[in-house]
Design a binder for these strands. Sequence first.
RNA 1: GCCCAGGUGGCGGAAUUGGUAGACGCGCUAGUUUGAGGGGCUAGUCGGGUAAAACCGGUGCAGGUUCGAUUCCUGUCCUGGGCACCA
Length: 829
Amino acid sequence: MSEAHIPPYEPQAIEPKWQRIWEERRQNEIGEDPARPKFYLLEMLPYASGDLHVGHARNYTLGDVVGRFRRMRGANVMHPMGFDAFGLPAEAAAIQHGTHPQDWTESNIANMIRQLRRLGVAYDWTRVIDTSAPEYYRWTQWLFLLMYRRGLAYKKEAPVNWCPKDQTILANEQAEGGVCWRCGTRVEQRLVNQWFFRTTDYADRLLEGLDRLPGWPERIKTMQRNWIGRSEGVTFSFEIPGATETISTFTTRLDTVYGVTFIAIAIDHPLLEQLIAGKPEEAKVREFIAGVADKTELERTQMEKLGVFSGAHAKHPLTGERVPIWVTNYVISSYGTGAVMGVPAHDERDFDFARKHRLDIATVVTPPGDPGFVVHDAPYIDDGVLVNSAEFDGLTSEQARSTIAEELIERGIGETTVNYKLRDWLISRQRYWGAPIPFVNCPNDGLVPVPEDQLPVLLPYDAPFTGAQGSPLDNVPSFVNTTCPQCGGPAKRETDTMDTFMCSSWYFLRYLNAHDDKAPWEQEAAWYWAPVDHYIGGAEHAVMHLMYARFFYKVLNDAGMVPKDEPFTRLFNQGFVLGENHEKMSKSRGNVIGIDETADRYGVDALRLFEMSAGPPGTDYPWSTTGIAGATRALNRIWRLTLRHAEALRRPPKAGAASSNGSADAELRYGVHSKIKQVTEEIGDRMHMNTCVSAIMTLLNDLEAYAASHDDASASPAFVEGLRTLLLILAPFAPHIAEELWERMGQVRSIHLEAWPAYDEAALSRTVIPFVIQVNGKHRGTIEAAPGSSEDAVFEKARAVATVNAQLDGKTIRKRIFVPDRLLNIVVG
RNA sequence: GCCCAGGUGGCGGAAUUGGUAGACGCGCUAGUUUGAGGGGCUAGUCGGGUAAAACCGGUGCAGGUUCGAUUCCUGUCCUGGGCACCA
């Protein structure tokens, strides 16, 4: 085809065209196929917020490149998409704009599906899920009952943020800074009976499982380990003279026990009342507690360490000394025993507290080699050697910890204990827009689970969303009033809904049988597809979502419903697209670049190509308007180059694309096959797509240069092979233009169902290769020689190079360092 | 404060095992095609130096190991992220 007859590249025409054709051919719909290796690829479930920007496009394109690549490499690729649709923003929108959360969510999802289709990602849309649809949350409820049956769901009193003015419960993020987000009133802590899952039962398994996840980023695993916060120590008791009860404390530093100069207890410690009753300090303690009580735990942690003497003393179990008991704001009741042995000399917090209240500081651990050491201006918190510790003097900290523990255990006043920072998962939300918890409260039978055949417990459409008066469901009599499944008498439904993290803890299994109404998923499908091979998502979900999903999966594994016991084999955290001003992309900063406006202007292939080229997938980079224009330019060049030779390409490739045009063809083939090798290894391993795009560009440059210098380029098998290769490796990145050009060069089968090109080792070996010549380590020239050339041969060629010879002139050669096929360094003096 | 990741041209970034630093792209400059449009093509583009070369310097900073260091080691500064009374 002559230059003049080449039609213009019009992405706005070809992109929708191919999307329609792929859909008609149902090309992206998949099923189980034992003959092929499976590959389960997933991006984290997006929240149904309504509008996608180029940051989302980057994320989903990354997945699509991996998916299309794997498919061309022969895998059966599961790559589904869905929406996290329950949650607070929908309810907030309802309160603010008067739209119903369901309507708001549905229109958002419709828009997002439209945008995702437009991106050309090869999702199997027959499997799409919406976590707020009854056909989905029915199974979320079913899984809640499974948790209950397995003894992992229970109800207990727990504090919530309560706004006294709005008369409502607030989520933590709505109570930031301790004030209500809507009216600014001081938030109170209120005790409410709520549902929990026993995640702590799985603490050790969640911890241990991390060691078997080599495909996870180390930093995410570290964050999870810290979150679980396992610590081994000893729990032991202090007697209180005159009282029957003892005060129990937990410590990991039993080696410092002889340094105890006070006991610190939380303001809500169970023994507190008993301790202060009738003492002169009672009034002061109550005043102190009143001042601390209305602060949230978070606020307390930011305050100065305060406390008052309770008036009571405890007896040190080893020394028998009297130790004052202080009521403090820095000891929390929800960890350990709510009481701490105060060792100012060897603990930072105790040191601060003791300083402020002029308590004794007793040094009992000294740095190695400094037995006379005494703590003055700062605590000594490292391990060391014991002093002033009776018969334990001279032991190292490590020895002392076990020896003293044995002593306490023998005397029956202590035991080894493991504590976790991880708490049980609070599932209850006093909200409307969530999956109802499937239980009823019966005056006769108490808390009764809704039978499975009565699921789902439907969320009523009509409910008041004023944002006040507690949960909206409390005010829907038709929902609340029901009958007891056991006795048939009148009963009331639970009005709490579930934390949305529950919906997203199992969704990746629902994709396997997204519309099954007999089970959440089929065993057969789970054993074929699970676990997820490759999970892509933001690092902001490092602990919450990823911990909950792991917990769920382990429970399901125990229940025999899934294979293996970790849900995500490889985890990849993608980076963000920043605004063109290098700031985080956000509506308030006004730097959001939308998918629609970008696709209208440049086409999605250009968007995809640019986003993959701009940087490695794990790091942030800024958007660039000129950058995407460059991607369009590149696609235009590919368009013109291919169509200029389309006629020739329609002819079948000549057998054995061997060199027919001497060294130019060999060089071209070298370029083609080294790019195949590079791209294949990159996508499969590091996923540094930016270097793949760069390889594609280089290949394009090579082919253009070849075409420019050979009138009959399309007669060369090497050139034809190069063009085909260009399209094949471009296909995962820019699927529409690759498909269009593939068709225009006479192919009938979709390029996305073609086999990924294999590289030819023979093409990668060359007759001459460059050798770097250094003198004293400095680059002084390059020579060309055959691979396998001897050191002497290279040396002889090197000294003929003027810039090398000039450096050798008049000097003695002391040494030569020769790296075969690479480099010769001549050391002179 | 503690832990982790990262500092390379005007910009995004390459250099995967120590071996030509700056691939590829953007931007910019000059030329060209010109009926203009964020058009096409050619050449150049780390700094100094030169007619062009040669040559000198250069990967946050200061040292070290090595024939040779963006890469390894020590110290230090800066940026980003996570954790932060968990006893």
